[in-house]
Design a protein around this nucleic acid. Structure first.
Lengths: 240, 240
DNA sequence: ACTACATATTACCCTTTTATGACAAACAGG
DNA sequence: CCTGTTTGTCATAAAAGGGTAATATGTAGT
């Protein structure tokens, strides 16, 4: 896997250095910028795969810059993780439609940061741990963005594709609606829990047209489970 | 297991400090707030996994705040343990539909507090001590949310599942109906003791369909016991 | 056997949870 | 700008679950 490039935009030197170190440790390449202007310059040279952006920046604030990027078709797709200090109205980060893909509250653990970065990259398709995931006769090709059952191609929307991708990489496990929203839609978006139901239904409908309505199961009171296993079969006992 | 975060809302400094100490000792992370307003602010920054809430607070009372939280879909799921002083109309705490998950009467032992917290966290699924519990040929998988005997999957309702989970983690021990209500339903809900009988019956019926009606045993005058061991065998004498 | 009490079982009804269909705003490409 | 998709939300329908009370059955002590 080619190393991914992360742009760090943070004015405080100490924190920026630390971030760079963490990223390097985790196997990412990284570039740094101290403010939005700087960052813009860097971006013109080489497009990063993800931006770690401080919420408060001298001059143009991080949020403002992020908003601009999201309006620019060139950069629309660039995932952004906002860094906020504790107490900096974090709710606004969630609430306002900034367009960030995730956010982190300082201070945070390196481990958590890296995990979130990976999650975002995965969600946005920059990381394909596996170009192709197959499960039973299901094949999901993340590179071609194609999903098929047996030899039949299914026509799924982007969201459905991501949902499917998440399910196929996490089979046989129950997820609450909130978990699914966090994992598939990303944190930092406010979406009704019930909306998950609707998407599940859409997915089921498509799967149902190919006789696999059974794949997505409702677990009443909890959420949903994806499983290719025969639902009448028992879970495999794990060696303790 | 990632450390869980507990929010302590208590106006008396001494008690608050003590609580924080106890929690730290027990391996939890914790944040403190002196009143509801404070607490709300803290919550906006970082969602705790559980709230320890004093019943009497200056300004907005603890109960009032709890009620509000339970109406907010964002916080609905947050488990709350109420702290009440002895004599503070404890029955009302139970009676009113506050939505708390448990309550404790001051003064209490640190040990009990921690136990309660663990119990609530377990009940609300924040703690997963064991993804899978097996006992004999019974397998209960909390991750998949599946329960099976041998290789047959059983279809159990949420409450039945929780009851089963409790039984399987506490086998060979008699519990009164009240104990079962406290542990499986949670304290602070008041439900007729006899209701337990009904649920026991429902469980037995399901188990019976798979030839294991013997698993749940009635102990006349006390309550119920769950045991995979042959009930005709003598108990093993324990060295004192 | 009779009484008093404990447990089992059933049926009912209300509440909560999930499924579904329709709609409108946002979006993507011409 | 249109035009067909995508996607989030809401209203409503459908289903499942769970608590209670009434009734039946069982047990122990006398």
């Amino acid at each position: 896997m080619p190393s991914l490039n992360i742009l760090v935009v943070e004015d405080e030197d100490a924190i920026r250095e630390m971030l760079l170190m963490i990223l390097e440790q985790a196997g990412f390449r990284s570039i740094a910028a101290a403010d939005a202007e700087d960052a813009q310059k860097v971006m013109d040279e080489a497009l990063p795969d993800l931006i770690l952006l401080d919420w408060m920046l001298p001059g143009v604030s991080g949020v403002e810059w992020a908003r601009r990027l999201k309006k620019d078709s060139m950069y629309r797709e660039l995932p952004i993780i906002l860094l906020t200090a504790r107490g900096e109205e974090e709710d606004k980060v969630r609430g306002l439609e900034i367009g960030a893909d995730d956010y982190m509250t300082k201070p945070f653990s390196p481990k958590e940061l890296v995990a979130r970065i990976r999650a975002v990259l995965r969600r946005t398709g920059k990381i394909n741990d596996l170009a192709q995931i197959s499960l039973g006769n299901l094949v999901l090709d993340t590179e071609q963005h194609r999903f098929s059952i047996g030899d039949k191609q299914l026509d799924v929307s982007p969201t459905e594709f991501r949902l499917m991708q998440f399910f196929m990489t996490h089979p046989d496990k129950v997820f609450t609606r909130t978990q699914l929203l966090d994992q598939v839609w990303g944190r930092s978006v406010y979406i009704e829990e019930r909306t998950v139901d609707v998407h599940i239904r859409r997915l089921r409908k498509i799967l149902g047209e190919h006789g696999r309505e059974d794949l997505v199961q409702t677990v009443r009171g909890f959420g949903y489970r994806f499983s290719v296993a025969d639902s009448s079969a028992a879970p495999i006992a794990m060696p303790s």
